[in-house]
Simulated scan of single mutants.
Amino acid sequence: MPHTELVHLPRWFTASQLQPSPTAEVHDWLFINQDSLTQRLMSLSADNFSVTPLFEGWQQLRQDECAALNVAEGSEGWVREVYLRGHGEPWVFARSVSARSALEGSGLELAQLGTRSLGELLFSDQAFDRGELQACHYPAACLPAAVQAERLWARRSCFSRGTLAILVAEVFLPAFWTATQIER
């Protein structure tokens, strides 16, 4: 990804702030269902679901991520980028981040997830509270080159447990909308 100063960053909105509002079907995927997206994708794909890690490691967090995590601009954090696939096709690009200052010493080993879904982990641990869902049209420049497209819907929420916060953003790719037969 290019240096963040050269890229338009996502501008996130709550359901009541988002104008114009998406169609009812898109709104459902962005805001209504509070369950694990992994579970919904498993159901949609008739259990033909997989996770493909693209990047995992320490990196400077983007400005919008630092603001959401309540850490200083320029903070370093753990970044995990994956494709959530249905029938082998990338349906969702997910980017999860957590500030180094909060992650170290938390006992959570994000580096050990491999091809497991982070959502699986977060929803199985009752100690995590999920914050409000937000959505936006995700900037193409913030996506992997293979799936760059304009005006793709994305959602994000922050999962917290004590001082640990994990920000999870999920971008719905064109193959997902084809699979759901929903006009976006």
Rank of each mutant, 00 (worst) to 15 (best):
Q59T: 06
G105W: 11
P139S: 11
A169E: 00
P174Q: 00
G77M: 03
A68I: 06
Q59N: 09
F128M: 08
L84N: 04
A127K: 13
V171F: 03
L84C: 05
C158N: 04
L173T: 01
Q148K: 15
Q134F: 07
C158R: 03
A102F: 03
W78D: 00
C66A: 13
L110F: 02
A149V: 10
D64C: 12
E120M: 08
A67N: 06
V171R: 02
T163Q: 13
Q112C: 01
S98T: 12
S98Y: 01
G86R: 08
E120Q: 14
E109L: 05
L133F: 15
R100I: 12
G105P: 10
E104N: 09
L167I: 00
R62M: 11
W91T: 09
E170G: 05
E120P: 00
E150I: 08
E120A: 14
A94D: 00
F128L: 08
S98R: 02
E73Y: 10
R161T: 06
C142R: 15
C136Y: 12
L108Y: 11
E89F: 06
Q60R: 15
S124G: 10
F123A: 08
E104Q: 14
C136Q: 14
A169L: 03
E170Q: 03
L113Q: 03
G119W: 09
L103H: 04
L69W: 02
L69Y: 03
P139G: 13
V82G: 01
R156I: 09
G107D: 13
S106A: 09
S160I: 02
Q63N: 09
S106Y: 11
L84Q: 09
E73V: 11
S96M: 06
G74F: 08
